[in-house]
């Protein structure tokens, strides 16, 4: 990572009892949860599509993707993530805050799904899992395998 030596700003959100984060540069916006239009995708964690200013954007169930249990609540949000030309929404329980995390707080995660998880930031007794935005978007091999 070119910016590994610098502090990074992260958007922190919760899924169940765990805390996750995405780099702020890739968070396009956060919107209130509306039931996406179901599309019966063959990929289980594709929840459906929503319209975002005329564009049709897929919405991913991040909890299902990570193998977590999570239900919908009043405060459920959709975080719109941008990576390259792709744009997608991920469902999160609640958006907590924007944190600036120094580079030395990150730790590699032994045994974690490194395709999804970039690193873990240890902040006091909090663990914030930094996700890899590029892999939130369905890689093509998932399509082929489906």
């Amino acid at each position: 990572m070119p910016d590994a030596s610098r502090a990074r700003q992260l958007v922190v959100f919760t899924l169940g009892s765990e805390q996750y984060a995405l780099p702020i540069e890739q968070v396009h916006e956060i919107i209130r949860y509306n039931e996406p239009r179901s599309v019966a995708s063959r990929i289980p964690w594709v929840r459906g599509v929503i319209s975002l200013r005329g564009r049709i954007v897929p919405v991913y169930d991040l909890a299902a993707r990570l193998g977590l249990e999570a239900g919908l609540t009043e405060i459920t949000k959709i975080v719109i993530v941008e990576a390259g030309t792709e744009i997608a929404g991920v469902i999160v329980d609640e958006v907590e805050e924007v944190l600036t995390v120094e580079a030395d707080r990150y730790e590699e995660v032994p045994g974690a799904d490194s395709e999804l998880i970039e690193s873990i930031a240890k902040l006091g007794d909090r663990l914030v899992v930094l996700l890899r935005p590029s892999t939130i978007f369905a890689p093509q091999d998932h399509l082929v395998a489906a």
Binding site: R37, V39, S41, I43, V46, G48, S51, R55, L143
Partner: peptide, 25 residues
């Protein structure tokens, strides 16, 4: 018509999407 994300509709007999007047797709 708007293009649909391929992950959402791969393999289904749909050719695109459209946003309706009420915001539904």
């Amino acid at each position: 018509t708007r293009p649909l994300p391929p992950v959402a509709t791969e393999g289904q007999p749909v050719s695109g999407g459209a946003v309706l007047a009420d915001g539904q797709i």
